[in-house]
Structure formats: C-alpha cells, structure tokens
Amino acid sequence: MHPFSYTHVSDTRAAIAAGRRGGRYIAGGTTLVDLMRETVERPERLVDISGLPLDEVTVTERGGLRIGALVTMAEAAAHPKVRSLYPAISQALELSASAQLRNMATIGGNIMQRTRCTYFRDVTAACNKREPGSGCAARDGFNRTHAILGTSDHCVATHPSDVAVAFAALEARVHLLGADGERRVPFAEFLLRPARSPHREQALRKGELVAAVEIPALPRPLRSGYLKVRDRQSYEFALTSAAVALHVRGGVIREAKVAAGGVGTVPWKLPAVEQHLVGERPTDALWAAAAQKAADGARPLAHNAFKVELLKRTVERQLRTVGGNQ
C-alpha cells in the first residue's frame, strides 16, 4: 500500500473542495481499500465522506425513488419502498457480495466500483485501464469472465455491479454534486464504455460527488426482478445477469425495461429486446424471440463465447420469470 493522507469531512462543500484538490472519496471502502492493498489504486489523499447527509431513501414527488449515495447496500435492499416498488433492485443487491460487505458498501460506491478483470488487479500485467497505453492483457489472455458487448481493442473488462444493471434497466438518473451545484445524468451516460480511454469510467467532473441515484416513476403495476447466473451459489460476480421490469395492462406489454450484466463493459441496456416486447401479448414464444436479440453485436473472445448463448437464455428465463408462463 502506498502512503496516503486521510481526512474526514462532515459537509458536502468541504468534500467537494477536497475532491477538487485531488482527493479520492471513500465511504464503505470495500473496493478501494482492496485495490490500495494491491497497489492498483494509489491515491495520495483520501476524503472520507461517510459522515455526509446522503444516507436516505425518499419517495420523489412523481412517485419514483431517490436512494442516497451513502445508503448501504444492505439498507437499500431491506427498504420497504425499494422492495415493494422495485424488486429488481433489492434482488440485485441481495445477490451481490456477502452480508458483511453489503453492510459496509454504499450505493454510490457500488456504481463507482472498478472491474474485477484479473489483469487490472495484477499490477505486473498490462492494463490500459490501470496504466493507459500499457496494453490489454485480457484480450488474448484468460478472458472467460470478460465482456462480449461494448468492448474495444483497448479494454474488454466488465462492469461488476449487479444493482447497476437494475438501475440501467429502470433508466435511473445519477445525481451529482459539484462546485456548481447539482446535476442529473442518465444512468446510460454516467458509466462510460472503454473506447480508447478505458481509464475514464464515469462521466464525472473533477471533484464531483455522487449524491444519489433516482429511479423514475414507472407505470403501475410494474413487475420486476433480477436473475444472476454464476458458478457458485453465493459471493461471486455474475457470468451473466438480467434485470427485467414489465408493465402489462389489458393483456398487452406496455412498458419493458431490460438490461444485462456480466456481459458488457457497462451495464448493458437491451433496447432491441424491449422494443420486441412492447405492444405484444406475453407468451413463451415472445420471450424466446425477444431474448434472441439480447446478444446482438456481441464480440466474443477466446474463453467467453459461451456467454453469447448464456446471455440469451438468461434474458429469456428472466422474461418468463417476471412476465409469467403463458
């Protein structure tokens, strides 16, 4: 671990000021501390924001939800409004990490967490994300768990979060606090695809702080859920996952929100699947046909070609689970 300084801040203005001077924010620390121990992250200044008043879940005026950045994963998962309005979010959270980690890790930290690519986490390997311009060891290395969507020649690492997949599906917005006040960024624009600069992962300005994630109100009734496919039954990142939310009225699908995890360099929204569903009547054949579009544009690597088929099956299964056997 490289030497670093540590300050604890108690108001957001001080936090942002410290952030603008180059400080790195830390809350639960469940990812950052690990990465610092491995010297993947070498921040010189840590700014502990865990005392900031960003730890509430509130219902928005329109009936959506605003989840403060410092709400822990455990708290968010257990929150009655989250559970009743967006089961996909609580399920995604409960299928993440371990109980101990969920008690420490925050929602803001979760969407900011860095990839589990083993080459990224091994400082002796080439990695454009960790060391721009050094190359990507994963492209031609062992890449079973890597992305098939949104990749570039420079990076094939997946975004590891589960709940971010649910946020992407539900078209959440990220509230950011900066020196100029608060702004809201659509989730799809918040996390960046690697392209030529895989080290830039979020659309954050210098010193900007994630304040909250807002889930928009969606037409009711809304059924939603999250499916995570992984080798072992707990405490592992997803091989594939799917967050699905459906609004069915009069026997017709009026709204469909679908995103996939474990397969993309960012949580992967599936508009083609959504469009195939909207206006149709739910049937098993519809789920199957829609899911066929889930891996459109996939570029598999040497060890992760199975994810193309697995992704389609994951989406189909979750469409059927949420939408029902017809």
Binding site: R116, T118, Y119, R121, D122, T124, A125, G141, F142, T145, D231, R232, E236, F237
Partner: peptide
C-alpha cells in the same frame, strides 16, 4: 502468470 491467484477468482 497465475491469473486467478486470489479467493475471489479461484472459487
């Protein structure tokens, strides 16, 4: 190199 030399990746 051993790619998964940790208990998150060696299951």
């Amino acid at each position: 190199r051993i790619v998964n030399a940790n208990l998150a990746d060696y299951l």
